[in-house]
Design a protein around this nucleic acid. Structure first.
Length: 570
DNA sequence: TGAGGTACTTAGGATTCCAATG
DNA sequence: CATTGGAATCCTAAGTACCTCA
């Protein structure tokens, strides 16, 4: 893909217009096809065994049993809360007088085998059937999956409502294993332009719960599971490539760039507050110090019906420990129950404050008792309009990327090497933001395979070098490694050496990156935190094709950033 | 002031796709 | 041509932020 070097005005290029900021309304006309529903359940008639006896289930019961069968042999099956909640919900559904009285004596293996067979059959169905299916889906997406906003056609991100199933709450979510209900059109509220056609409900004889014309929001529809009291409202939005999302993304980055010119003053202020006599000020200053230095999330209060995870303001005494030389260790479960575990040296005054906040409290008490996320964000508003805690994460992530990229000299490097440097910079950001992923399943095996391959390439290279000497009549004749043909001429040998050296180098880079990125999720910061213009400008300066760092969907999401000049700076 | 509601962004894992490889 | 593994995309849970209301 060619990156446009100059601004090119197009009528639909919203990013060419001056940014209006959050305006009073998002749209004038809004037209779309509503939502679609997953196909109805097809009963298979395969029984569950209870105490080794087959039990006939109603279609609805069978569907739920099948959900469980699909988690058998996964970690979900043995996860205590998940199991307990599922059992309760399943038994409630079956009723008091049902043969099945508990989960432990149920055997789902026949259903599981059936699912496996079905999957195999699906995988092995004829090519033309797959193709026809794909084309049908594409046609349907083309027909249903777009909205027209003020005359511009935009993709919808989540056209299909969530299918029924088991609620997969993360970490120790107290409600994991509950049954998600099959939604009906009567659960869906539609948002549409006043003068636009109300979408027809795809299920004959049924109607939407409600139709509204709210131009102050960007959602096309919303629903809430009618049975699950704890479940959140789910919205149907436009895709990331849309103007709604792109504009707000651009504004987000512009806001974090604006923070750049306030940051010195803010840092001076919170360092002063840290030394203040007032407890509230001490806490505000210390909390903001942690948010700024460690890129912590703000940490809103959570209800009893959610997993026990924390952010800065909700840290408890048990999450912090003190070492020598002003070192503190933070150890807590953050968003998605990802562990944050970090030992850092802090300013002596911060260390002192943290010790003071802990004094005389038991482990389950709040570290910060006089502030909350709302007072902290109020404090931030006193510096800059629209400033909130999350802006610090965006700012520090983007700042770190640009700073890390400046560390390298990209001259005379191959594209692969430049990308390795970029990935290294990306990784620094991901580590700062604590973006983690679990180690891939057979990671060790994969590494070994790559090492073996590398080894045989090195052997081949070794052979080539000796072989070249032989051709130059300076050395013994050597046998090529198995399956390799010796180059016929000196010229061919030299070419083979250069080629193999490049391969070896690339393999080494790949191996090293794979290991270093084992538990680091690079994508999250790329998608949400690092100003894309930093990357675009870097690509332009260093002749790296943008598609090497931004896949298709990211290029669409960041279409507004593609015009950044090579000299652009965050 | 705090609880609850609303609307949006951010997140890791699951699933699907696709290209390299045998 | 089938396999395989990594990249890309999909899915939906889980955050932030701000508003309203008593």
């Amino acid at each position: 893909m060619e990156i446009p070097q100059k601004r090119k005005a197009e009528p639909n290029n919203w990013w060419e217009e001056d940014l209006a900021g959050p305006s009073s309304k998002y749209w004038t006309t809004l037209e779309h096809k509503g939502v679609t529903f997953p196909p109805p359940y097809q009963p298979h008639g395969v029984p569950v065994l209870y105490k080794n006896e087959p039990v006939v289930l109603s279609p609805q019961e069978e569907e739920v049993a099948t959900w469980w069968a699909s988690v058998v042999d996964t970690e979900w099956e043995t996860k205590e809360i998940f199991r307990k909640n599922f059992e309760k919900n399943f038994l409630d559904l079956l009723g008091k007088n049902h043969t099945i009285k508990d989960l432990d004596n149920c055997d789902f293996s026949q259903i599981k085998a059936h699912l496996e067979t079905q999957r195999e059959a699906r995988k092995n169905r004829p090519q033309e059937e797959k193709k026809a299916e794909r084309e049908l889906k594409q046609k349907n997406d083309e027909e249903m999956g777009y909205a027209i906003v003020d005359g511009v056609r935009e993709k919808v991100s989540n056209l299909m409502v969530e299918p029924p199933g088991l609620f997969r709450g993360r970490g120790q979510h107290p409600k994991a294993g509950y049954l998600k209900t099959r939604l009906k059109s009567e659960d869906i509220t539609i948002n549409i332009g006043k003068d636009n056609v109300v979408p027809k409900c795809s299920i004959p004889g049924h109607a939407w719960k409600n139709v509204v014309h709210n131009d102050m929001v960007t959602w096309l529809a919303y629903y809430k599971d009618p049975e699950l009291s704890f479940s959140n409202v789910k919205y149907v939005y436009l895709a990331a490539s849309s103007k709604f999302k792109g504009l707000s993304d651009k504004l987000k980055y512009e806001k974090s760039r604006k923070l750049k010119s306030y940051i010195d003053g803010i840092r001076t202020d919170y360092l002063n507050k840290i030394k203040s006599e007032s407890k509230i000020e001490k806490e505000l200053g210390t909390a903001l110090y942690l948010i700024d230095k460690l890129a912590l999330r703000v940490g809103n209060e959570k209800s009893e019906e959610e997993a026990d995870t924390v952010g800065c303001c909700s840290l408890r005494v048990e999450h912090i420990s003190f070492g020598s030389n002003n070192q503190v260790t933070l150890d807590f479960l953050g968003k998605d129950s990802m562990r944050y575990y970090n030992t850092v040296e802090v300013d002596p005054e911060v260390y002192e404050n943290l010790q003071l906040f802990v004094e005389g409290k038991n482990s389950s008490e709040d570290l910060f008792e006089s502030i909350n996320t709302s007072s902290l964000n109020d404090y931030l508003k006193s510096f800059m309009e629209g400033l909130s805690a999350k802006v610090f994460r965006t700012y520090n992530a983007s700042f770190t990327l640009e700073q890390q990229l400046q560390k390298y000299n990209f001259e005379d490097k191959t594209v692969e090497e430049k990308i390795q440097n970029y990935t290294d910079a990306n990784r620094e950001v991901a580590i700062l933001c604590n973006h983690q992923k679990s180690t891939p399943k057979n990671f060790e095996v994969q590494i070994e395979k790559m090492q073996d391959k590398l080894k045989s390439k090195l052997e081949y290279l070794n052979f080539l070098e000796k072989h070249l000497l032989h051709l130059q009549e300076k050395g013994e004749k050597v046998d090529p490694p198995e399956g390799q043909k010796p180059p016929a001429s000196q010229e061919a040998a030299r070419r083979a050496i250069t080629r193999t050296q490049t391969t070896v180098k690339n393999m080494e880079i790949k191996l090293k990156m794979k290991d270093e990125n084992k538990t680091v999720a690079l994508g999250t910061s790329k998608i949400n935190y690092m100003d894309p213009r930093i990357t675009v400008a870097w690509c332009k300066r260093n002749e790296v094709p943008i598609e090497k760092v931004f896949p298709k969907t990211l290029r669409a999401k960041f279409i507004w950033a593609m015009y950044a000049e090579p000299e652009w700076s965050f």
